[in-house]
C-alpha cells in the first residue's frame, strides 16, 4: 500500500510540474506580438488566456484517482486538469496555437479542448460543464460500471443555476459524480466574500443531502486524501460529493488583467507557500525520491513540454475554408 501511495505522490508531482512548466512557457509565448502595446488578438496565441499557475493541486491530487474511463469536465482555465487527465499534450498545444493538428483542428482554442479518448472536455461558459458531467455519471450508472464523473469549477460557478440544478439531480439520482470547487478567491475581480453567501461551498452539500469536504491551504496531500475518499464512495454507489479546495491564482483572471482589485502583496505571499515546492520537499524529506531522480524527472517533463510546443509551432494552420467543416457529422 505504501508503494502505491508513494507512486501516486510522484504522479501528482509530475502532473503539477508539467502543468506549471507548460503554463510558464505559455505565459511567455502569449506575450509574443503583444508588446509593447497589448493587443489581445495579436501574436501566435491570440484570444483570451486563463492560466492556472498555483491551482495545480486541485487537478492533480484528484485526477490521480481516476482512469481514462472516468470523465472530467473543466472550465475556461483548463490546462492543469487537461494535463493531469492525460490529454494529448501535442494536440492540445497545437489547438491553442490554432493549428490544423490541434484537438479541434483549430476550431476550439484554449477554452474549448475536447479529447474523448481520455474523456476530457472543458468550456468557456461558467457552470456550463457541470450538467455534462452529471450526464456522464448517469450513463455510467445506467451501464452498471464503477466509472465516475468529476466536474471542476471555480468558486464563481457555485452561484450559477447550473450548479444547483446539477447538484440536485446528481443527489436525487445518487450518481457517481464529484464536484471540485477550485476556490481561488476571485471571480475575475469580485472576491468570494462579495459574491457568496456562505464561507465555503462544501457547506452547500448539506442542501442536497450529500457529503461536503473542505481542503484548506491548497494542500496537495490533503486534497489527495479527500479526493480518494470521494472517488471511492462514488465508485461504491454511495453518491456524489462536493470538494472545495482553497487554492491560489498567481496570475490575473486572464493574461493582460491589470489586477487593480487585489493587494500587490497577495501573490508573493501565496508563492512562498507554493504547493509544488511543498510536495517536492515532502518527497525528498520522506525519501520517496532522491535529488538526482527528481532532476531526471523534471528533465523528462521539460522535454515533453518542449516537444509539444515544437510540434505546435511547426504544424500547419488550417485552410480558411475548413471553417465550413464539422458543423454536422
Amino acid at each position: 500500500m505504501k508503494h502505491i501511495y508513494e507512486n501516486h505522490l510522484l504522479w501528482v508531482y509530475r502532473a503539477m510540474k508539467t502543468s506549471r512548466y507548460f503554463e510558464e512557457k505559455m505565459e511567455k509565448v502569449y506575450l509574443e506580438g503583444k508588446q509593447p502595446v497589448f493587443n489581445i488578438g495579436a501574436g501566435p496565441v491570440p484570444g483570451e488566456m486563463h492560466l492556472s499557475n498555483g491551482q495545480e493541486p486541485a487537478a492533480a491530487s484528484m485526477i490521480v484517482h481516476l482512469t481514462k474511463n472516468d470523465t472530467v469536465t473543466a472550465t475556461h482555465r483548463p490546462h492543469h486538469q487537461a494535463i493531469a487527465k492525460g490529454v494529448d499534450l501535442k494536440k492540445m498545444t497545437a489547438e491553442i496555437y490554432g493549428k490544423k493538428t490541434g484537438l479541434g483542428k483549430g476550431k476550439g482554442g484554449h477554452m474549448h479542448l475536447f479529447d474523448p479518448k481520455v474523456k476530457f472536455s472543458c468550456g468557456g461558459i461558467v457552470g456550463g460543464g457541470i450538467p455534462h458531467a452529471v450526464g456522464a455519471a448517469l450513463a455510467n450508472k445506467k451501464r452498471g460500471t464503477d466509472w465516475v464523473a468529476v466536474s471542476f469549477i471555480g468558486e464563481g460557478a457555485a452561484n450559477t443555476g447550473a450548479f444547483h440544478e446539477s447538484m440536485n439531480l446528481a443527489a436525487l439520482w445518487n450518481l457517481p459524480f464529484i464536484l471540485v470547487v477550485e476556490n481561488n478567491s476571485w471571480g475575475i475581480s469580485v472576491s468570494m466574500k462579495n459574491s457568496t453567501s456562505v464561507s465555503s461551498n462544501d457547506i452547500r452539500a448539506k442542501a442536497y443531502g450529500i457529503n461536503g469536504y473542505l481542503v484548506k491551504d491548497n494542500d496537495p496531500l490533503e486534497m489527495y486524501r479527500i479526493s480518494k475518499e470521494a472517488v471511492e464512495r462514488a465508485r461504491e454507489g454511495k453518491g456524489p460529493s462536493i470538494i472545495e479546495i482553497e487554492t491560489y491564482r498567481y496570475l490575473g483572471h486572464f493574461q493582460g488583467d491589470p489586477e487593480l482589485y487585489r493587494p500587490k502583496e497577495e501573490v508573493p505571499i501565496l508563492r512562498e507557500k507554493d504547493p509544488i515546492e511543498r510536495l517536492k520537499n515532502h518527497l525528498l524529506r520522506e525519501n520517496i525520491i532522491t535529488d538526482d531522480k527528481i532532476k531526471n524527472l523534471e528533465d523528462k517533463i521539460f522535454n515533453e513540454v518542449d516537444n509539444a510546443y515544437d510540434f505546435a509551432i511547426h504544424s500547419e494552420y488550417p485552410e480558411p475554408e475548413e471553417a465550413l467543416e464539422d458543423v454536422f457529422c
Binding site: 450538467p131 450526464g135 456522464a136 447550473a162 446539477s166 439531480l169
Partner: peptide
C-alpha cells in the same frame, strides 16, 4: 423508470446532462 425518466423542473440540469450521456455513447 430507467428509460422513461421524469425530471425535476431543471431544464439546464437534465438537458445539459444529455450532453454528457450522449458523449458517453447513449442516445438521449
Amino acid at each position: 423508470s430507467d428509460r422513461i425518466m421524469d425530471t425535476p423542473i431543471s431544464e439546464t440540469g437534465f438537458i445539459g446532462a444529455s450532453v454528457g450521456a450522449a458523449a458517453e455513447g447513449l442516445r438521449p
